[in-house]
Simulated scan of single mutants.
Amino acid sequence: MKKVLLFGALFAFLGLAAYAQEVEKVTDEDLAKYANVEVTFDNYVTSKTEELKSMILENEIFQGGGRYNEIKAAWGDDAKMTEAKVTEEEKAAYIEVKDFQESLQGVLKEYKTGLIMDEEILGAGTYNKVLAATKEDPSVKEKLDTMIAEMKAKQEAEKEDTVESTDGK
Rank of each mutant, 00 (worst) to 15 (best):
T27R: 10
M81E: 08
I61W: 00
Q21N: 12
W75I: 02
W75S: 07
Q21H: 10
K48A: 12
G65R: 04
T87S: 15
V39W: 00
E90P: 01
K48H: 13
S47E: 14
V39M: 02
E60M: 10
K25G: 09
N69E: 11
A32F: 07
A74M: 10
A18D: 03
E51I: 07
D78Y: 06
T82S: 06
N36D: 12
T49L: 11
N43F: 04
K25H: 12
A18Y: 13
F41H: 04
A17G: 00
Y34H: 12
T40H: 00
G76K: 04
E38C: 04
R67H: 07
M55C: 05
G76N: 02
A84S: 11
N59S: 12
K91G: 04
I61Y: 00
V45T: 05
D42V: 05
K91D: 05
N69T: 13
A17R: 04
T40Y: 01
K48F: 12
E22Y: 10
A32S: 13
K85Y: 00
A93M: 02
K33E: 04
T46E: 11
Y68G: 03
A17V: 10
L52C: 05
L57A: 14
A32Y: 05
G65F: 06
F62C: 04
R67F: 07
A93G: 03
F62W: 08
E89Q: 14
S54M: 12
N43Y: 02
G64N: 04
K80W: 08
E60V: 10
A18E: 05
T82W: 03
T82Y: 03
E90N: 08
E22I: 08
V26A: 02
T82N: 09
D28Q: 10
K80R: 14
D77N: 15
Y34E: 04
E58W: 06
Y19K: 11
E70M: 04
A93P: 01
L16H: 06
D28E: 12
E88D: 13
E83S: 13
V37A: 04
A93W: 01
V86Q: 09
Q63W: 05
E70N: 01
E29V: 13
L57Q: 15
V37L: 06
A92L: 09
A17L: 08
E29W: 06
D42A: 14
V39P: 00
E90M: 08
E38I: 03
K72C: 07
I61S: 06
A18I: 14
E50G: 14
M55H: 02
E38W: 00
Y19T: 05
A73E: 13
A35H: 01
K53Y: 14
K85I: 00
K91V: 12
N36E: 12
K33A: 13
T49M: 13
T49D: 11
V45F: 05
N43D: 07
K85S: 07
V23S: 01
L57M: 15
E38Y: 03
A93K: 02
V26R: 00
Y68F: 15
I56Y: 02
G65I: 06
A93V: 03
L16A: 15
V26E: 00
Y19I: 11
E22S: 10
